[in-house]
Nucleic acid binder design. Structure first.
Length: 638
RNA sequence: GCCGCCGUAGCUCAGUCGGUAGAGCGGCUGAUUUGUAAUCAGCAGGUCGGGAGUUCGAUUCUCUCCGGCGGCUCCA
């Protein structure tokens, strides 16, 4: 091809254009769609991401990338990481940058550098801002391996990455002002695109590799404009306001003491909610043919040796030595259920045998991982074990998948499924694992469920389907789990007599739906920002007499509500009505009933529904029935 | 557990460049009897997370332990 000879470029809408050879990708895209060209931050050239400055040397397919595309978003995050590295090295010249990838949330960059301080962060932010103002270009250069090794001679991390570049692939570096980083690219055209970048914080991390030194990880987020960044930061501030730890304290649901780290203390109002969840789950258990049992919190070491927990889970167990015998606090309910099943001979006619147990479990979680209600050391699962034949497994799991849909819909949560497969440390034979994994996968597929596969994340005894629920800000939490287990029943030598007269080992499905009361409530609190559905609310209605003359009437109404099983409080009259309404709203009480002279006279109530200023007058029986009905139907909104 | 940061009244936070601390809300008492997001006044409440060290003197500086937060790792 001759210099300047036109090349033919095709675009996603099928249109094409001839441009002089060597035209930058950005130039071609501007010809194609001048209106949107300003939002293009990189391009896809023959399916691979490239810089807008990249010259088109031959014909081919060209598509734009903007922030709206995941790939484009990642490019902006990655460019932000470069900008951060530039600023950090300007601030602390001896710092050695390692890697700075985009993440789901934003981006980070790891450095080998002295421990950072908040003051460093300020200096880094200033340096980044300066660079953004200067609109410094990201310039790509391809260099020889020798040149690259010279450029990064002081940085062993980069030298290692240079050595890892496959033979035949060019080593590329990007210059941003005076800063040069090893990078495959592509990048946004210049730092002016990074006005919506914000450094969130830093923390030390310890890389996996043996002998490696701790690194400082600086995290940030990037948006195309400062306005979008502001919107994001506002969302984060809201997330802080709905933190379950804050709401739990404000509404007196639970607390933690220094003397019992990771052990939640349920206060009366929180305990009401735990009981409501229990009731919600238990109703289903009754319909679905479960039986409830209770087994000890402690078992002798030998039980865990049989179950495999001694080998695979001991470091997470609380142990007690009594009369020279070691007892372990159970971290899971399975051993107890196994012992109950094995306590006498069983017939196939009993299967599926569904044993539920809601016992407190103890897990010695590392202190640094504890987090409010969502990561605790004492927890209660809505747990059950289904003992069944291999043929019964599918039907049982189908029921569970249906129940998951129903349960999470009640809370208006969105959830997702994850299939976790055989871990490095596992019990049993690989072939059995493959079969179990195939079964779970088939069930997910036939239900039309979208799921993610997490290789190696299964329990040590079997693969599992995990449920992740997201709170309203999109943060995922693992809750329910369905685990298929061919191992532990064998280890406990569980058997049932089949129709063939032979003894067979049952399969066990371990499953929880909500997961644990603790974590589930933590997420629900954040999801609804403490404005609980009436059925779950610790106080469902508060009755406010306007003056003390209406107090007897208010108490009478409260009795009527209590008589139908509702949780009611009657407000005092020491404070102004406005103040008491305000307090009730801040307490997130779903129904506020005001009783004044008028209401007493005509037997009505002035109902104020939580969050709604306008009040609805209704007769007392109407009011009682209205609240009762919405609670009974577990309506989400009051 | 690892790294960093933090710990002042029940809660949210101010403050002390080393001389033993304040506010708002909440609580209690009194007055007010109130019509839909804060009526007024008064009072009580803190060995400034625990321990040790430096100092004439430590809530303030140092060390250490405990706890919390943000990450890492791990998980329901």
């Amino acid at each position: 091809m001759l210099e300047g000879e036109p090349v033919h470029i095709r675009f996603p809408d099928g249109r094409g254009v001839d441009v002089p050879r060597g035209t930058p990708a950005g130039g071609a895209l501007a010809l194609w769609d001048p209106g949107r060209a300003g939002t293009f931050l990189a391009a896809l050239w023959k399916g691979l991401p490239v810089d807008l400055a990249s010259p088109l040397l031959e014909g081919g397919e060209l598509a734009p990338l903007s922030f709206a595309d995941r790939a484009g978003r990642d490019i902006l995050q990655h460019s932000a990481a470069h900008l951060l590295a530039k600023a950090l090295v300007e601030t602390i010249p001896e710092a050695r940058p390692t890697v700075g990838p985009p993440t789901d949330e934003g981006f980070y960059y790891d450095f080998e550098v002295r421990p950072l301080t908040p003051g460093d962060l300020d200096a880094i932010r200033t340096a980044m801002h300066r660079s953004v103002q200067a609109r410094e270009a990201f310039r790509r250069r391809e260099v020889s391996r020798d040149e690259a090794r010279t450029l990064f001679a002081r940085n062993p991390y980069k030298l290692r990455y240079i050595a890892e570049v496959p033979e035949g692939e060019a080593v590329s570096v990007y210059d941003t002002g005076a800063f040069t980083d090893l990078c495959r690219g592509p990048h946004v055209p210049d730092t002016g695109w990074l006005a919506g970048v914000h450094v969130l914080g830093f923390s030390a991390i310890t890389p996996d590799a043996p002998g490696s030194v701790p690194l400082q990880r600086v995290r940030g987020v990037g948006f195309p404009t400062p306005k979008e960044l502001e919107a994001y930061l506002k969302l984060r501030a809201e997330a802080e306001a709905r933190d379950h730890r804050t709401i739990g304290s404000r509404q007196e649901l639970f607390l933690f003491l220094d003397e019992a780290p990771g052990f939640p203390i349920w206060l009366p109002k929180g305990m009401v909610m735990v009981r409501e969840l229990e009731k919600f789950v238990t109703e289903h258990l009754r319909e679905a043919g479960y039986a409830e049992i209770r087994t000890p919190l402690l078992f002798a070491q030998s039980v865990y040796e049989t179950s495999g927990h001694w080998e695979h889970y001991r470091e997470n167990m609380f142990l007690s030595t009594v009369e020279n015998r070691v007892f372990g606090w159970k971290p899971m309910n399975c051993p107890g259920s196994m012992l109950v099943f094995g306590s006498r001979s069983r017939s196939y006619r009993e299967l599926p045998l569904r044993l539920a147990e809601f016992a407190p479990l103890h897990r010695l979680e590392a202190s640094g991982t504890l987090h409010g209600l969502t990561r605790v050391r004492e927890l209660v699962q809505d747990d059950a074990h289904i003992f069944c034949t291999e043929e019964q497994v599918e039907a049982e799991i189908r029921v569970l998948l249906r129940w998951i849909r129903e349960a999470f819909s009640t809370f208006r949560l969105t959830w997702s499924y994850e299939l976790s497969t055989r871990p490095a440390k596992f019990l049993g034979e690989a072939a059995l694992w493959d079969r179990a994994e195939a079964t779970l996968e088939k069930l997910l597929k036939e239900s039309g469920i979208e799921y993610r596969v997490s290789p190696g994340e299964g329990a040590f005894y079997g693969p599992k389907i995990d449920i992740h629920i997201r709170d309203s800000l999109g943060r995922p939490w693992q809750t329910g789990t369905i685990q298929l287990d061919y191992q532990i029943p064998q280890r406990f030598r569980l058997e049932y007599q089949g129709p063939d007269g032979q003894l067979h080992t049952p399969v066990v499905v371990h499953r929880t739906i909500l997961g644990t009361w603790e974590r589930f409530l933590g997420v629900v609190i954040e999801h609804c920002a403490g404005r609980f559905p009436p059925w779950l609310a610790p106080v469902q209605a508060r009755i406010l007499p306007v003056t003390e003359h209406q107090a007897p009437g208010a108490n009478g109404l409260a009795d009527e509500l209590r008589a139908v099983g509702l949780r009611v409080e009657v407000g005092g009259t020491e404070e102004s009505l406005a103040k008491r309404v305000r307090t009730a709203e801040l307490d997130r009480v779903p129904y506020i009933a005001v009783l004044g002279e008028r209401e007493i006279a005509d037997g009505s109530v002035a109902l104020r529904v939580r969050g709604q200023k306008a009040n609805r007058p209704m007769s007392r029986p109407e009011f009682v029935e209205y609240v009762r009905d919405r609670v009974r139907r577990r309506e989400y909104d009051p």
